[in-house]
């Protein structure tokens, strides 16, 4: 097991290096830089040029890359040109928001997916199953950002049950109970919107796995041996059916830090996804590269985690 993990990590390392180079070179190809947007007659091109020189934007990409990677190894991703603060501090501000939002979303997703998937699979082709399947198709067909806008309009503005933007109510002091509660309230609607749409594929997976497993020989054997229906489902079918979901879990973890662009934008929720989009548009390169690297690392680690989880629940696939 440990050997397997170590081997996976060794493969991971060059992936990350390659990713960082790729990210850096691609960023260089984007037209414009952080100063292009400053088309202000007061700020002369000479001043812009001096700033570029000081930021090292005029150096060839490999010089910039070595400077950058040198810092990145020690956790220093440089200065955000737009925010005028260290990128590390900036990400720290945002990552908690995204983490909590994603965690709550994940919890909602499983709370919705597991019972629906089991009901749907167990009683397949009944009206109950058809209703659930109908919901999943609707979910597939609905674009997240439209759904989120509709949710915001109905529950945020029409009923006024939820706050409509931001991550916390203004004016509360961090650490107080009101603050935590307000944060949670602000999370609920975006998390719910995302979970209701995002969960449908998991429901479908679970359903089809259960339907599939039901017809396997070992289930028939179990039934023939007189196992009760609930034992058949809980001990035999479910254990086998959650495999792919467990495998996905690692990937879901990745989402915990990368956030989602639509949701964060619509709910004015300052998380990593929104930061990424803004930074790309404003050509705040140091932030873009740091984020892509972070997302990349998270994706790679997520895949690793998935493999590990899978190898725990399903000993057959362990790499020898």
């Amino acid at each position: 097991m440990w050997k397997f993990i170590v081997r996976r990590l060794l493969v991971t390392f060059p992936q990350i290096v390659l990713l960082s180079i790729l990210v850096f070179v691609m960023a260089q190809f984007m037209p414009g830089d952080a100063l292009t947007g400053q088309v202000d007659p007061n700020v002369s091109p000479e001043i812009k040029q001096q700033i570029r020189e000081r930021l090292g934007l005029n150096n060839p990409w490999y010089v910039q890359y070595t400077d950058w990677i040198g810092g990145a190894v020690t956790g220093d991703f440089g200065q955000s040109f737009r925010f005028k603060m260290p990128v590390t501090d900036l990400i720290e501000q945002r990552i908690y928001n995204t983490f909590w939002l994603s965690l709550v979303t994940l919890i909602f997703m499983y709370i919705i997916a597991v019972p629906l998937g089991i009901i749907s699979g167990r009683y397949n082709d009944t009206w109950l199953d058809q209703t659930i399947t109908g919901y999943t198709y609707l979910g597939f067909a609905t674009p997240l950002f439209i759904f989120a806008l509709v949710m915001l309009w109905i529950f945020g503005y029409q009923f006024g049950w939820f706050p409509t933007s931001g991550s916390v109510a203004p004016g509360l002091s961090p650490g107080s109970w009101d603050y935590v509660w307000s944060k949670f309230q602000h999370l609920l609607l975006p998390a719910l919107s995302m979970a209701l749409i995002g969960t449908v594929s998991t429901v479908q997976y679970l359903r089809s796995e259960i339907v599939d497993t039901k017809q396997r020989d070992f289930i028939i054997t179990a039934r023939a041996k007189g196992a009760s229906e609930s034992r058949v489902y809980n001990r035999h079918i479910l254990r086998n059916s959650v495999l792919p979901i467990a495998a996905f879990f690692g990937w879901e973890i990745t989402g915990l830090i990368s956030g989602t662009i639509f949701i964060e934008r619509i709910f004015g929720y300052p998380g990593m996804g929104a930061l990424f989009l803004e930074s790309v548009l404003m050509r705040d390169y140091s932030v873009v590269t740091a984020l892509v690297l972070l997302f990349g690392v998270a994706a790679i680690l997520g895949a690793l985690l998935s493999d590990i989880i899978l190898s725990i629940v399903d000993p057959r696939i362990r790499i020898k």
Binding site: W153, T164, S165
Partner: peptide
């Protein structure tokens, strides 16, 4: 005074509800 950032997409709703 309380200042908050409002997205252009939702500003009309926020005005309507008095937010």
């Amino acid at each position: 005074i309380t200042l908050k950032v409002v997205a252009p997409e939702t500003v009309a709703n926020a005005l309507e509800t008095g937010e």
